[in-house]
Simulated assay, not measured.
Amino acid sequence: MIDAEYTRIMARYNAWQNRQLSDIVHAMDEDALTQDRGAFFGSIFATLNHLLWADKLWMSRFDPSVEPPQVPAANHGNMTPTISVWGAERFHLDGKIRHWSMALRNLDLKGDLHWYSATADAQMSRPKAECIMHFFNHQTHHRGQIHAMLTAAGETAPVSDLVFLPEGF
């Protein structure tokens, strides 16, 4: 399905995309970031927080050294109080994702991942490789929403094509 190299490429891509978004959103004013733009989570900032929250949750399932988010699912859109706090937490987590991917071996992708889902209120079990693919796909999906909201806000959204991922990133 996937191999460890896939996770390394996607971890680099994730960090690159978040770095570009961070540069843009740090230059925006709070009203522009928190304005309801009709997206699933409403605003750019709430969507950024949702993505950070979900990434922490999934990483805590993949890597026991990563703590799950400390806010409940119902409050994930308000996970961080400011864009600066979001930026620091995002940068830290992206480093953890890259470190995890670098240590991953193909053998680590085999078998099932088991967890309790509060959203589904059920014990879950899925192939590890499928969960990892979901993790990276979920990031790309919500960054696409952020991209559209930035464009609608009159901002120049970043390049998001994987083929343009800088070699040294």
Rank of each mutant, 00 (worst) to 15 (best):
M1R: 09
M1Y: 14
M1Q: 13
D3I: 15
D3H: 12
Y6T: 02
T7Q: 06
T7D: 05
I9G: 12
A11D: 09
Y13S: 00
W16P: 03
Q17E: 08
Q17K: 06
Q20I: 13
I24A: 05
I24L: 00
H26A: 13
H26T: 04
M28V: 01
M28T: 01
E30S: 09
D31Q: 08
L33S: 00
T34Y: 00
Q35M: 13
Q35I: 14
D36M: 01
D36Y: 02
F40S: 03
F40R: 07
F40D: 01
F41P: 00
G42K: 06
F45W: 06
F45Y: 05
L51M: 12
L52E: 00
W53C: 03
W53H: 09
L57I: 08
W58F: 04
S60I: 02
F62N: 13
D63Q: 03
V66P: 04
E67K: 14
P68D: 15
P68F: 10
P68A: 10
P69G: 10
Q70I: 12
A73G: 15
A74T: 11
A74E: 15
A74V: 06
N75M: 15
N75D: 07
N75Q: 09
H76V: 03
G77K: 03
M79N: 05
P81L: 12
P81D: 06
I83R: 00
S84A: 13
S84H: 14
V85G: 12
A88H: 05
A88Q: 13
E89P: 02
F91I: 11
L93S: 11
D94C: 04
D94L: 10
D94N: 07
I97V: 14
M102L: 09
M102G: 08
A103D: 06
R105T: 12
N106M: 05
N106V: 03
L107E: 12
D108I: 01
L109V: 09
K110Q: 14
D112E: 13
L113K: 03
T119M: 11
D121Q: 15
D121W: 11
Q123D: 15
A129V: 02
A129F: 07
I132T: 00
F136C: 05
N137I: 04
N137W: 13
N137H: 11
N137S: 04
H138D: 11
R143V: 14
R143E: 07
G144P: 04
H147F: 12
L150S: 03
G154F: 01
G154V: 00
G154L: 00
T156R: 10
T156F: 14
S160M: 05
D161H: 07
P166S: 01
E167Q: 14
G168D: 13
